[in-house]
Every structure is written in C-alpha cells, then in structure tokens.
Design a binder for these strands. Structure first.
Lengths: 348, 348
DNA sequence: ATGAAAGCGCTAACAG
DNA sequence: CTGTTAGCGCTTTCAT
C-alpha cells in the first residue's frame, strides 16, 4: 500500500483499508458492497463487519470516474417572483430531492441567465457533473428539450412539449384543464351560473389549457361564456383590474383564476367594493399557495400533486439512466381542488 | 492512447484529445486550464484553440478524485410548512445557489429525517460527496455544528450558536432584535404607545431575540410592556387567539409579530372584529413573505437580507476551503423594514 | 467464490 | 516552460 492506513492518516478509509482489515482483496470488498450475492456468507459477514468498524463509505469521485456516472441530477431554478403567490417550484424541489434520494440520486441546483433558457446546462453536461436534468421552465417555449435531445442528454421535463406535440422525450405534467374544470363544476354545483375566468395572456399555453377547463365545464352546463373571460399578466394588480371590469360589465357571482396571484387580485376588488368573499362572490385560485392557505377567508385553490410529479419524474429518470433503457412517454396527472371559505355556501 | 479519440467515440473529449490536437503533452493542457501563467503565450493560444475546437471541459469526477474536492456544498432542506407564511429558506436557497456559482461551487440539496438533525450529513461527508455544508436549521439546538466540528468538516452556519456562544465556527445571522426594534420604533413614531408583541415560545432563542428588540424599543420610549406580550406556537390560529386575548385585556393599538404567520392571525382577528387594519390597529410581521406582499392591506414586515447572507456564507466558505485557510468568525446582518398599509397612517 | 491486473481522466511532483 | 511518472479510489474484465 502506498499510503498510510486510514486510522493513522486523517483521511477516510478506502477499499484497501477494509480489505486489509477483513483479510480479503480489494475486489472482494467492492463485491461485498455492489454484488453481495457473489460472496460466501461468512466472507460477506466479515467484510461487512470491517466496513462497519471503519465506517467505510465508497469515495464518490472514484466511483463516479469509474462508472461514468455522478448520481446527480441537475435542476435549474429561478428566483421566486416577489409580489406573487407562485410557489410551485419550491414545493416541487423538495419533493424531487426526497424522491431522488430514495432512488440514489442527489439534486444539484443551478441557475442561469433568465433571458437564456439554455445557459447553465451546457457546462454541467460537458463536465459530466450531472447524469441528467429535470427541466421545469417549459413555458419559455422549451428550447431546452430540443437542445438536450440534440446532445443526447438524458432529461425529463416537468411540463408538456406544447410547441412540439411530436416530441419523444419523457415528460410529466399536471392537467390544468381538468383542475379548472373541476373548480368550475364545484362552483356550478353551488348554484353559480355566471362564473368568470381570469387567466394569462393568450401566448401562455398553460394558461390556455387551464382556461379550456373552465370553458368546457361552462359549456357542459349549457351556460354562456362570452364576456366572462379576461386574459392578463400574472400579477395581483392585473387580477384586481380584470375583476373590476368583469364585475362592472358582466356581474359574475364567481371567479375561477389561473393562479392564486390573480385570485388575490379578485379578493382585493371584493374588499374594496365591500362585497363578501364567498357569500357575495366566490373565488377559486390555482396552486394552493401559502397565500391561499393563510389568507382570510381561505382561498379555495387547485392543488398540483407535486409529490406525485416528482415520483413520476424520478421513475422516468431511472428508466432513462438504467440498464436496460426504459423509455417513458408523457404522464399527465390530475390536480385536486382544495375547498376553503372563498367558495362560499351553496346558493340553493 | 488506449481509447479511440473523442471524435470517433461518442464520449466527451479528454485532456489527451486536446493534447494530441495541440501537439503538446497532457500536462501542458492541464496547466493551460489551471495555471495559464506557466505557459508561453503562443503555446497557450494553441492549446486554447484546441480546447475550443473540441469543446473540451475537464471531467469533474476525475478532477474531484485527484484534488479531493467536489466543489459541491451540501444544504439540507426541509419541507415548507403548509399553512404558514414561512418562506425564508426558499429565498435563501436561490441566493446561495447564485452566489456559490460565482465562487465556483454548486449546491447539492439533501433531506433528512426531520426528527434527527444529523441525518443526511454523515453519508455525504464520508463519501466525500461535498466539500462543505451550509447549516441552516440551527433553531433545533444546533447539534450539527458540534458534530461537524468534531469531524473537522468544513461548514458555515446560517444562524448564531445560541446554545454555545463560545463556538468558534463561522456563522452568519440576521439581527432579529434590531429588526423588531426598528419595527417597534416605526410604530412609536406613528404615535402608537400600546404596542403588543406576539412571538414564539420561550424555548426559541430566535423568538426571544426578536422579542428583545420590541422590548428595548418600548423601554427606550419609556413605555410599559407588561401584559402586552404573548408567546405562542407559530401558526395563524395561535396568532389569532393571542391577538384576541391581548385586545381584550390590554387594548393595544399595534402589534409587532415574530413572523408573518402570526401577523396573519392578527389580521384575522381584526377582520372578525370589524377593526380596520392599519387605521384602527397597526400590524407588522417578520420575513416579508409572499403573503405579506399580496394580502390586502399589505402587511408591513421585517425583511431579512438573504442575498447578503448568502454572500457572507460563501465568503466564509471560501475562507474555510481556500489555501491558506482564512477563518471567519460570526457576521451579523441587519434586516430592513418594508412598510405597507398595515402600518396605518400617522396617529398624530 | 476470490484475486490480479488494468485503467477511468485528471493533476502534483519532479525532471529536463 | 514542457514532458514524464505516478497515483487519487474505484470497478470491470479475466484468471484462478
């Protein structure tokens, strides 16, 4: 051996240290860790004892070098938008970290120039720092998917390939239309007939999808929708202004919104006009943000099953990275509606 | 060479590929990357050209193995608490990721058994997966610091060593007392004299610190504090109940709270009693959460300078990991007060 | 079932 | 200033 044993040096124990202590070769120790079935029961036990005694854990860098895998998955995050209720990402990050760990992966966070959806990916990929990516900001038109596909980089998207339905990469998404449809039905069941929609600008595919859910539910109920929809920026002020206009021009008794941020704008308007939230006008948001949870009265909201999204994402990742490669197509999950006081009572 | 060159194989180019193309030895390429000053100008240029041509980037695993460093820093995160307005961690994570990148580090996220403050650290440390940790959940009594210190693992704490003021490790914290003092002074300046405190249970050092700021400001103004303080759990319901009791028994005209979550509870009480937020009773929270930003009326709140915290943390980290080792002691940063409508008008 | 040999891609130490 | 040598700690052949 070319270096002092672990006990004398301050360095962590290596395979060689364990081998020496157990009286076997290094290879046998490696097998004990990675292919225990190959060892005879008593040898295995002896090696495991030595491993425990020494507190041995394989050195990551060495293993990574050898296996050409880092067991790291990269996730690009953006700054939370101040002044909004958006918090999907943070809940997702936590779920992903948790689920990844169970699959033997850690999550490496990185940021990039917000105006360049590609920045940050390339360096990590070329330096083999991560095995795969989870791509989340697909609303940007999602050039990442195409780019990563081109480099044959494994990745799973949280978000459908809106722009390119023929894309073959793995993705997981939440059915926003279904969420808004169930929110609208919920209000219809309470007796509302004039239910307004406040969503995002038309260039947002996600926004149009959610809007379609509202529209479908209204049509199914045989109710008109014209004059009841508004498309604005995702800010509280926009939600407030849009709801003012809608109240003046169409007098809806309920609002379904594409986000909790917009829903908060509606609550502002109701407050300013002395209308009682829930009792006079019902409101449902989207995301089940902390804001929805702590505001008074509580804001009903569509909640994305982010824990399940993480599970599906990691499953897809394992398929992509495992041997044999198991390709997964798209997975669409259904959100649930969290009912709070802003839904109001039944209007029998 | 023992393997096909990068162009023919699908693998990324290596040092050897670059060396061959530039007509120099591998070592020279390594120097071109890590110690450019050592090369003659023309050689450097030639090597850099080859690097650019090939799109070469050093393989992380190999470099990590050789240098015994991963350039990764570990950060343990916990699930965001639903039903609260707490969001410090998410803002901090983003700032840390951003700042770390500038220093050449990436952030590796991990979770652990919530009941065991140590879980998760050990494996990463022993497997040499990270170079250092950023420890944040110091409110747990912070056994991590001692434990990490014992293993001589580099780490920086976001949070003071409350339990052990003699601790020598690097830490960065925000002066909660100063924040609450300035919040209280802000209300005093508006003409309030009966300013109540709603904070956390006595075993929370952070809570006691924040409370001290309120207390100090009141004393300096020559105002009594007895009967004006309450210590409860960090939930909206607790804030609501505490404010009801305080209003009944002491009739304060303003509240300073240890968190936005508690402040939301106060807003609930005011709403239920028909008291106008700001006009009748002023409220100030702590954290400048999204909730504070989007609720109506806006909630004044103490904002932690998390971007600066991240900068100080990374600076300390660089000192810890750099050569020579530069030890940093504690850094205490001052938060700022974000004034919104819940502060109310001047009560001349 | 266990061991020996080779090498992943890089850099520290030294030689020239 | 550049090249040679020798590993970092691990796993993948291939013998035994």
């Amino acid at each position: 051996m070319s270096r002092t044993s672990a006990r004398t040096s301050g360095l962590p124990p290596t395979l060689a240290d364990v081998a020496e202590r157990a009286g076997v070769s290094r290879q046998t120790v490696s097998n004990a860790v990675n292919n225990p079935d190959l060892l005879r029961a008593d040898t295995l036990l002896r090696v495991q004892q030595a491993i425990a005694d020494l507190g041995y854990l394989p050195n990551r860098a060495a293993r990574n070098l050898r296996t050409r895998a880092s067991h790291l998955i990269g996730l690009r995050i953006q700054a939370a938008q101040e002044g909004t209720a958006n918090a999907t990402m943070d809940r997702f990050v936590h779920s992903l970290v948790e689920t990844s760990r169970e699959a033997g992966y850690h999550v490496l966070l990185f940021t990039g120039d917000p105006t360049d959806p590609l920045s940050g990916y390339e360096d990590l990929l070329r330096s083999t720092a991560v095995d795969a990516f989870v791509v989340t900001d697909t609303y940007l038109g999602n050039p990442q998917a195409e780019w990563l596909d081109g480099r044959r980089a494994p990745f799973v998207a949280f978000g459908r390939p809106w722009e390119n339905p023929g894309a073959t990469h793995a993705w997981v998404d939440v059915d926003g239309a279904a969420g808004c449809e169930s929110a609208t039905r919920h209000l219809l069941a309470k007796g509302h007939e004039k239910i307004a929609w406040i969503g995002w600008r038309k260039d947002s595919r996600i926004g149009e999808d959610r809007r379609a859910g509202w529209h479908r539910a209204m049509k199914e109920a045989g109710l008109p929708t014209s004059g009841l929809a508004s498309r604005v920026e995702d800010t509280v002020a926009s939600g407030r202004e849009a709801s003012e206009v809608l109240l003046d021009e169409a007098a809806p008794t309920a609002f379904v919104c594409a986000s909790d941020t917009l829903a908060m704008g509606v609550l502002h308007t109701l407050g300013l006009r002395g209308l009682r939230v829930g009792d006079d006008v019902a409101v449902v948001g989207f995301d089940d943000s902390q804001v929805a949870q702590v505001v008074r009265p509580g804001l009903s909201s569509v909640r994305q099953p982010l824990e399940d999204v993480a599970i599906e994402v990691v499953t897809a990742l394992e398929g992509l990275l495992g041997r044999p490669r198991v390709a997964q197509q798209g997975v669409l999950l259904t959100p649930s509606l969290v009912v709070r006081d802003s839904s109001g009572p039944d209007r029998v």
